[in-house]
Design a protein around this nucleic acid. Structure first.
Length: 802
RNA sequence: GCCGAAGUGGUGGAAUGGCAGACGCGGCGGACUCAAAAUCCGCUGAGGGAUGACCUCGUGCGGGUUCAAGUCCCGCCUUCGGCACCA
């Protein structure tokens, strides 16, 4: 009898072996096929590794270990997304430098990850806060700038008065700051933007050729929000003048029902021709009110419509020539479409609400059962027939849209246009702990890029990096750094003091992994030629619409300028579900239901933690932690260890189909069905225990199948029974497709679709054989058989006359 | 409002249209033990039957297609996620 399994000793032994012998470090090797497995690199927070990380990383860990056994040259890198607010806030609170905090956190994460036994290539670690890394983040920004894809504009922004930072819309949802929960206010600000909208169509198109789950594609499509419509030019007339006013509509067919026109309070019409407006004071007051409102209030659905008629102006419908009134209302947004709409109250809820409130006419242009004076008929696309619409009458909606656009284009009053909900990417933050934006503001030359040979533009070593009250970056306090000379004309100039958002560094890190130390390229061309795209990327659903789109955008841009060879960065993407507390709620400190992976490793070891996190349930769905469930995996490991003493030449192998087991486990791993893969191995283990012995071949197969999940114990077991051989040098077992079915099969027999019993027959038995066997077993009487359905080796169903 | 995913025992969850509940947890009973823990063995959807090898019911609800439906179709309910005064 072998000694009891000592997980502490064994796990330490194998981790030492892996890491000190650099087993998982890889080089380009044209003799082997490559496989690039990627996990989202963690943000090294002070809290350390979370069980959510374990679930997120373990899928690619299994795939990486399996692919290596299958002969692939596997790139499985790790790094740290280390710029960001929590570190900076913690550093301020504890009066330390963020650099020090970051280094400590990274060291902590590294230690924890190694204790779990992950097979990362530790020679390729990247850290987004390392100047050798952010040098290239800045370089990519400069390429974007040079191509006109980075620009500065004044807009109102969401500002968090507590964090003293400008927030993107997605970081201030519900009108509160993502980070601290404070109420967000609106503020005028110069903001850097990246023109991601220029890539909207390609980001959509690219989804057709990648293997992402449908839900991820759908979320990205919604985020991009493509809509087909038309720009239609109305003429605004006022005392002594005319002004072309372009509205955007997805329903140009309904223009005969347009009874008024609405412009956003920020619309240029109300600036450029404001002197023609009769009720100036009233409108100015409304504009002031709109500005005060936070984004949150303004986009509240179903709230009362407000607005003011623009007196002294009216608009001419370019199709009918009819004059209609012009309003300004805050339900029209300046940053979508053209900031102006033609209102068709009969067929749009918002326009209808507004028309009712201001007693405006409602003209039906799509026939329906509803009385549009009582409620709008908001037909889904394609439903209904045009009425009251002159030459469109009798047409269905779709052909009517087509005909109207053709008509407008011929008349020169409108043209087809595709628009996107996605906005340009606000690309700056007023914080210290981020990549400095490498731009110099010269009074003569304007925005001048920092020369590339001066990159990295390092963060100055500030003592006080608390944000300023007026919302400018703490870097502005460092005058030595801010004051410089213009690289073009030599005049005194000032550096840009904003830093990049946290999404910057993570938008291209997967490319840096391919040549992490190359001093001359962001991505080494030879390395990129070999490693190419990420074959499989796993991460969280929460990053699907930001990180995943941003990084696809950067990759497409880098493709356009010839830096990388592939247009899409990721071939396949999967997403793990959340690990919940044992109470079924999201883990959080305040609920006190947080599980620390360190504690689990201490108590049960890494293999049990890895087993449990993968066995817990459907990988893509949320699953609650269970302290009892962990015990079950510990039991399984003990039983698995017991196999060491059960190997025998005389074992009867007839009850275990190894080929089928290999296929099932291998296929399940590839499909992220780790729970059923492990269940299959458990079943096989139960079979072996029931018989009391197993062959050497069975032993090695079971070890190899479980190795990707539980590498420590399987490495030890394999070594012991194979004369010191290392399992990581072995090959993943293969199966013979001809042997997947057993010699005899048990066929369920149904009568009228209801189970009557089972008969055992030789595999491949004919319908007549099975029917005869069923009759002999008394499962079928002597009723008249109308019909039989036989699925070979699967089922027999007999239909009889009643 | 629009889009998407999901609803299965006490519980986490399995089931290319073909034996519903694999595997695990928990529970019950037994073995070992002075005893407990650990371990091992057996049982464990509900109801009925003589507690048996038998029958009936059963995958959110109501219909339908099919020899056969957790799975496909139609109509609902509930939960979760995404987008959202998006023209």
């Amino acid at each position: 009898m072998s000694e009891k399994y000592d997980f502490n000793k064994v796990e330490k032994k194998w981790q030492d072996y892996w890491y000190s012998n650099h087993i998982f470090e890889v080089k380009e090797d044209p003799s082997k096929p490559k496989f690039y497995a990627l996990i989202e690199f963690p943000y090294p927070s002070g809290a350390g590794l979370h069980v959510g990380h374990i679930r997120a990383f373990s899928s690619m860990e299994v795939i990486a270990r399996k692919k290596r056994l299958e002969g692939y040259n596997v790139l499985f890198p790790i790094g740290y997304d280390a710029f960001g607010l929590p570190t900076e806030n913690y550093a301020m609170a504890t009066k330390q430098h963020p650099r020090k905090v970051t280094d400590e956190n990274i060291a902590k994460f590294t230690g924890q990850l190694k204790e779990v036994g992950y097979s990362f290539d530790w020679s390729r670690v990247v850290d987004t806060t390392d100047p050798d890394y952010y040098k290239w983040t800045q370089w990519i920004f400069l390429q974007l700038f040079k191509k006109g894809l980075a620009y500065k504009a004044t807009t109102t922004v969401n500002f968090c008065p507590k964090c003293k930072v400008v927030l993107a819309n997605e970081e201030s949802q519900g009108g509160v700051c993502d980070r601290c929960g404070s109420e967000v206010v609106q503020k005028e600000k110069d903001v850097w933007f990246l023109r991601i909208r220029n890539y909207a169509e390609r980001l959509l198109k690219g989804l057709e050729k990648v293997n992402f789950p449908e839900r991820i594609k759908t979320e990205q499509q919604n985020w991009i929000g493509r809509s087909e419509g038309a720009d239609v030019t109305f003429t605004v007339r006022f005392d002594g003048g005319e002004y072309p006013l372009v509205v955007y509509t997805t329903r140009p067919d309904t223009i005969f029902g347009a009874t008024f026109l609405v412009v956003s309070p920020e619309h240029p019409l109300l600036k450029e021709h404001f002197d023609k407006v009769v009720n100036k004071a009233e409108i100015e007051e409304y504009q002031r009110q709109a500005k005060l409102k936070k984004e949150f209030d303004r986009i509240q659905v179903n709230k009362d419509k407000t607005g003011i008629k623009v007196e002294g102006m009216y608009a001419v419908n370019p199709i009918t020539g009819t004059e209609i009134p012009v309003f300004t209302a805050d339900y029209v947004m300046m940053d979508y479409g053209t900031g102006a709409i033609m209102a068709v109250p009969a067929h749009d809820q918002r326009d209808w609400d507004f028309a009712k409130k201001f007693s405006l006419p409602i003209i039906e242009v799509i026939k329906s059962d509803v009385d549009v004076q009582q409620e709008p008929y908001c037909a889904k696309e394609g439903a209904g027939v045009m009425v009251n619409s002159d030459f469109l009458n009798g047409l269905k909606v779709k052909p009517a849209i087509k005909k109207m656009i053709e008509y407008m284009e011929a008349k020169g009053v409108g043209k087809a246009k595709v628009d996107y909900k996605m906005k340009d990417w606000a690309f700056n933050r007023q914080r210290y702990w981020g990549e400095p934006i490498p731009i110099i503001n010269c009074p003569h030359c304007g925005q001048v890029p920092v020369p590339e040979n001066e990159l990295p533009l390092r963060l100055p070593d500030l003592k006080d990096f608390t944000p300023t009250d007026d919302g400018t970056s703490p870097l502005s306090k460092c005058t030595d750094w801010v004051n410089t000379v213009c690289p073009v004309c030599g005049a005194p100039a000032k550096r840009e003091t904003d830093t990049m958002p946290q999404w910057a560094g993570s938008s291209w890190y997967f490319l840096r992994y391919e040549s992490p130390r190359d001093p001359d390229h962001a991505v080494n061309p030879d390395a990129n030629r070999y490693w190419g795209q990420v074959d499989w990327y796993n991460g969280g659903m929460e990053h699907v619409t930001r990180h995943l789109i941003y990084s696809r955008f950067w990759n497409q841009f880098l493709y356009d300028i010839g830096v990388v060879k592939d247009e899409e960065p990721y071939i396949r993407r999967s997403a793990q579900g959340l690990i919940l507390g044992s109470d079924g709620e999201k883990m959080s400190k305040s609920r006190g239901n947080v599980v620390n992976p360190d504690d689990v490793v201490k108590q049960y070891g890494a293999d049990v933690l890895r087993l449990f996190i993968l066995f817990i349930g459907d990988y893509e769905k949320p699953a609650p932690w269970s302290q009892e469930g962990i015990k079950g995996c510990n039991r399984f490991r003990q039983r698995f260890w017991g196999l060491v003493d059960m190997v025998s030449d005389k074992a009867d192998t007839s009850d275990l189909n190894l080929d089928a087991l290999i296929k099932k486990v291998g296929d399940d791993y590839e499909a992220c069905k780790f729970n059923t893969a492990i269940a299959q191995i458990m079943t096989a283990l139960n079979t072996v225990y029931a018989r009391g012995s197993l062959t050497k071949k069975e032993f090695n197969t079971l070890c190899l199948l479980l190795y990707p999940v539980a590498p420590h114990i399987t490495s030890e077991m394999y070594e012991r029974l194979n004369g010191g051989a290392k399992i990581d040098r072995a090959s993943f077992p293969t199966y013979d497709p001809a042997k997947l079915t057993a010699d005899t099969v048990e066929i369920p027999v149904q009568l009228m679709g209801k189970l009557r019993g089972r008969v055992t027959v030789a595999a491949g038995a004919t319908e007549a054989d099975v029917l005869a066997a069923a009759k002999e077993a008394g499962l079928i009487g002597d009723q008249e058989i109308v019909k039989t359905i036989y699925v070979p080796d699967k089922i027999l169903n007999v239909v009889v006359r009643r």
